[in-house]
């Protein structure tokens, strides 16, 4: 038996399950699976779920259920997780979640911090671009702004701290790095991450269903495109 994961009270109608305290693809997959299971088992007793790096917040309808019952439903979901592991041991957790490929126009024109990031890393710009594309990232959390997905982990060689002074305006579609995380800005907003390129694919579209191309637990790869393809895909400079 694996050790029991801690479940804490968060508020009058929410419990939070802690899966671990570090970034891990396996944990991200477990959180996504538990969320999916609870959506089914709790049905209209569920108000909302907030998956994040190492935890899952479960918000329930207190007029229909209570923390005793929800705790039990969470434990049942976690047991399914263990069972799934045994039956399907061939399927590594790193393979779970959808795989989404995002096109990026990497250049000093579209990524104003590309040069400084390369200088800092003592690499060429082409090396930085190549390293950013080498990793299959995991969506660890979505938050900060609608559609903002935190992807990890960036190769240590191109990890870079946030800017000392955040920009007032980061353009929509900006592909950025902060420490060992990377992301695509879904809309123009202030931001302090290092900008290395632009992605023409919308990351958040309120009129589309689904309104985001990724969800927590999915895997993301980046694919370099040139200026011409970027414009052809609807990108704006």
């Amino acid at each position: 038996m694996p050790p029991q994961l801690p479940i804490s009270i968060a508020g009058e109608n929410s419990l939070i399950v802690y899966f671990g305290d570090q970034l891990s693809a396996e944990i991200a997959a477990q959180i996504a699976q538990t969320a999916e299971h609870l959506r089914q088992s709790m049905a209209d007793r569920l108000i909302d779920l907030v998956p994040s790096y190492g935890s899952l917040l479960v918000i329930y309808q207190p007029l229909l259920t209570d923390h005793f019952r929800v705790r039990q439903l969470i434990r049942q979901a976690l047991q399914q997780l263990d069972k799934g592991k045994g039956e399907d041991s061939n399927k590594a957790p790193s393979q779970s979640g959808a795989l989404v490929s995002l096109p990026v126009y990497y250049s000093t024109e579209s990524g104003p911090d590309l040069q400084s990031l390369a200088d800092r890393a003592k690499l060429s710009i082409d090396e930085v671009i190549a390293i950013h594309q080498q990793i299959q990232y995991r969506v660890y959390a979505i938050g900060f702004a609608p559609g903002f997905a935190y992807l990890g982990e960036v190769d240590e060689r191109i990890a870079a701290p946030r800017l000392a002074t955040p920009r007032q305006k980061v353009p929509r579609g900006a592909v950025a790095i902060a420490d060992r995380q990377t992301a695509v800005y879904p809309a123009q907003s202030p931001g302090g991450w290092n900008l290395i390129g632009l992605c023409p694919q919308p990351m958040f579209d309120p009129s589309a269903e689904p309104s985001m191309p990724v969800q927590v637990g999915d895997r993301v790869t980046f694919r370099a495109i040139d200026r011409q393809e970027f414009i052809a895909l609807g990108g704006e400079l």
Binding site: A10, G11, V50, Y53, G54, A141, G143
Partner: peptide, 11 residues
């Protein structure tokens, strides 16, 4: 600090 996690109303 902690790893970023879900925030409920009134936290």
């Amino acid at each position: 600090g902690i790893l970023s996690e879900g925030i409920c109303l009134g936290a």
